[in-house]
Amino acid sequence: MARTQDVRAALDRVTDPELDESVVELGFITGITVEQHGDVLVNFRLPTYWCAANFSYLMASDMRDAVVALPWVTAARVVLDEHMFVEAINDGIAENKDFQEAFPTEAQMDLSAIRLNFGLKSFERRQEVLLRHLRGQGFTPDTILALDISGLSRLTLDPEGIMARTRYLERRGLVGGLPRAFVARDGGLISPDMLAVYLRNIRRVGLNAEFNGALCRGLLAARYNTSSPLPAEPELIDFIKQATASQ
């Protein structure tokens, strides 16, 4: 049980690049099986048969890497259910191939460009959440934009603010301009008198992700006629839900 929770916690940090939400939260994970000797099997599903193969592949390889990184894990297998490219994806992940090797005739570019592009969107989305939170707490644009990373880390925040800061700092390294805490996606400075306009501009990134998240959740529920993930282990879900609710 403790090991299953370990795996779940590791998977919880894997996100759908498009939605910037945890694959566990989204209900994509349908099963976690831990063998005595430390082999782990993760089963997952997606909202449609057509979900883009590159995104599916990204998530599957991120899941495998996250699980393998656990110290007690001897081997990790990640298996996707019912998808247009189910064999190519499952075999490719099992054999540790990169995307181009898994799709030798179809793939024309590797996934790193897509990973970066969506990493930057995630950066903007998380930054907007944190900036709006700080503004709401009464920090002025001048104060906020003068912060460096350590200054941001030292700010006393409520739990919501701490969560927003943690999530933002996970993506901060994708962009230059360090050690400044807040810069635009090109690493450029944001001037205090333009902060409101800047926030207005990046807002649509988060809105887009939210909208897609709602769509994907609806499609997943319609496809599998259920909204609760991990049907095999209801006691675990309940535990996690309880834990999330009490946070």
Binding site: W50, A53, N54, F103, E106, A107, L215
Partner: peptide, 12 residues
């Protein structure tokens, strides 16, 4: 929009 058969190319 939501599309069919998107593979490696960023079809969206």
């Amino acid at each position: 929009g939501p599309t069919i058969l998107p593979l490696d190319r960023d079809a969206f």
